[in-house]
Design a protein around this nucleic acid. Structure first.
Lengths: 250, 250
DNA sequence: AAAAGTCCTGCGGGATACCGCAGGAGGTAT
DNA sequence: ATACCTCCTGCGGTATCCCGCAGGACTTTT
């Protein structure tokens, strides 16, 4: 029952019962040889099962109650960095993919698929990730980049970092304190970001006043292109409180 | 087949095949008497069916390809304002509920449920909306308001409006031009908004500089509390281009 | 070696955000 | 009638955003 299985234990964390059942059936109908399939409907249960049973592979819904799929992945990868993990989600936001790449170990084996993926494509992707060790990112997400004419796909980690800083509402001084650079350097980095996002030139109103302010406009553009969302901001906010010595006056 | 039905024609618009099937079964197993159930898997098909068949009721997924559930609802309500519509979604964002209330006719009969709703509760909600004419908003969404300690739930439409304006990146001058008020009035409204969001007092850094700028901070707070998201910004951006005479220089 | 590229940083200056103060207009309550 | 409330708006002043200019440090390329 076990010595001939490609995957001895596979963990599914998915709160939607229909989707959970669909995944189990898809796995059972595939030609992957799996010993046992564990199922969890929320993040805490998922984390507990992953600690108790040490799965050889996992399929994690990004958004589950009580703990995110990324958190669970971190737990799994902390134990065994090579564990293949497939994330699946309703969300094609690049923001979420960045969330994963930030915690993924070097050379991690993972995939990111949308729940809208057709069953046969899903099956092939699962085999690609778990048997062939491929990293597969759903084409829909890549499609977002292309739609944006490569303007946004070229945001470096440092550029994305300062985007998040302004999205949290930090002043130039606040960012400078956080990053240990000068205020003028903050501004230099922002100029770079604005150029990347194509918002250096701002339309003028009839009386010559600019219609947009670049700081807010950069965040708006990133939100609309799904590089930022409320969830990633929450996570950034948590990190912020570790890094910044604020006189607590809120 | 028809003269004894409570609902002669009911339209389902839902792109996820599993969810679509689940809805159909739930309806057939309920004690609602329904003549025919039409199904659409995207927004265009949904709009076409609603125009061709004039459904007496509808269940609309908020996020479907090609056209939003809100757009379809608008089409339906433009024809017959009393049509009961149940929206269902993965999203508990207050931003989406606001999107619906903005297009709903006075005295419209609608509901908003989450896809995580248990089947028996879903069934009861469907009957409540379609037979009893109730308006039912999922408790999870109300729960968000409570979690935020009533700070955000008290945002008036006008306050929300100017929140969206700054989230789009408009300058004070830009908002003044858009709303036909003075720049100082824009600032007065913003002061009100900042007070409502609890961000008038901003923590200071060690050198006495503020840590946050209020404009960006307000947007961050709203994003994190799900009163704003990328989708609602996109819709607002579209409207903006109707209202603002910008020298097109982007 | 010199040249080029990248990033950092101080300086100065204009544009915009933010806000207290004060007065006015319109509406409601007593 | 007066008093109160809400919102609008001009004025003046401070804080912050934004950016050109220029020089320096470090790395890479020729």
């Amino acid at each position: 029952m076990s010595t001939h299985c490609e995957i001895e234990t596979l963990l599914i964390v998915e709160d939607d019962a229909l989707h959970r059942e669909f995944l189990r059936k898809t796995l059972q109908e595939s030609d992957l040889q799996i010993g046992q399939i564990l199922e969890a409907s929320d993040g805490e249960q998922g984390t507990r099962l992953s600690q108790d049973y040490r799965p050889d592979a996992a399929i994690l819904d990004l958004q589950v109650p009580k703990k995110t799929g990324v958190d669970i992945a971190k737990t799994i990868w902390n134990r065994r960095a090579h564990t293949p993990i497939m994330f699946w989600s309703n969300y094609s936001d690049e923001a979420y993919v960045r969330g994963i790449t930030r915690v993924a170990p070097p050379k991690a084996n993972y995939g990111y698929l949308l729940k809208t993926t057709a069953k046969d494509r899903l099956e092939r992707a699962i085999i690609g990730i778990f048997r062939d060790g491929q990293n597969i990112i759903d084409r829909e997400i890549s499609g977002i980049k292309q739609r944006s004419e490569n303007k946004f796909s070229a945001l470096s980690d440092k550029e994305y970092e300062i985007l998040v800083d302004i999205a949290l509402g930090l002043t130039d001084g606040g960012i400078a304190a956080r990053r240990g650079i000068s205020v003028r350097s903050v501004q230099a980095r922002l100029q770079n970001l604005y150029a990347k996002l194509g918002i250096c030139e701002v339309p003028k109103l009839k009386d010559g006043v600019g219609a947009y302010n670049r700081r807010n406009r950069a965040v708006a553009v990133a939100l609309m292109s799904r590089q930022l969302n409320g969830k990633t901001l929450e996570m950034a906010e948590k990190e912020l409180h570790h890094h910044l010595n604020l006189e607590d006056d809120t």
